[in-house]
Design a protein around this nucleic acid. Structure first.
Lengths: 94, 94
DNA sequence: TAATTTGGTTTATAAAATAAACTTGTTTAC
DNA sequence: GTAAACAAGTTTATTTTATAAACCAAATTA
């Protein structure tokens, strides 16, 4: 009756990150930080978890002289996100 | 942009319990256990938390000789549930 | 050149979820 | 009638998570 919710996505911050990444081609650390309002430490940890599950890719480079971390959602991530949304729907009337 | 999700409802089991209670007049412990598939210990703990927040009421009585715990959603609980659903919607496209 | 800011990571702490063990009483099988 | 199994939970312990605090290196600003 109640499908299991992917614990990796059932986290406020990771869900917000995935929600952003699902809608754009890529987003960098700073952007994700501003949009989510998360602390850098928390965001760093959660990004690592999403990357470890291959839900996103993380690319480290430089923008001029400053480091720049760019995240992208993977096909696995898109599928997991969609499944999570579908599962969640079962928890609510209509 | 991403509204805070009520941490009391952002829990798989508590959400399932609230989802059930939102749709019925009352439900007893055993019914909730069967519908959610949760262990009794976990359900007991989560019910306590919902009751402590006044999201549900818990009434202990007997059905014949056997103990029977009946749960009901409160107006506070209904409002919190609705707000959670609304907040969650902001995390998804459309 | 000293202080501050940027862009993070690592480590420590607090909170949550979950499982395991236990309790109290009831029913069933011998 | 009594031992074993079951019902309905609760309590306690363990594991996992989330979050915050501290830290680091390089760049920028005063």
């Amino acid at each position: 009756m109640f499908p299991k919710l992917d614990p990796l996505l059932h986290s406020e911050l990771r869900l917000a990150v995935m929600s952003i990444l699902a809608g754009v081609d890529e987003a960098d650390f700073t952007y994700l930080r501003k949009q989510t309002g998360a602390t850098a430490g928390n965001l760093s940890v959660q990004i690592d978890k999403l990357a470890a599950a291959n839900y996103i890719t993380v690319e480290k480079g430089f923008q001029g002289k400053m480091p720049r971390t760019t995240c992208r959602i993977t096909p696995d991530g898109q599928e997991a996100f969609q499944q999570y949304v579908d599962a969640l729907r079962e928890y609510f009337p209509q």
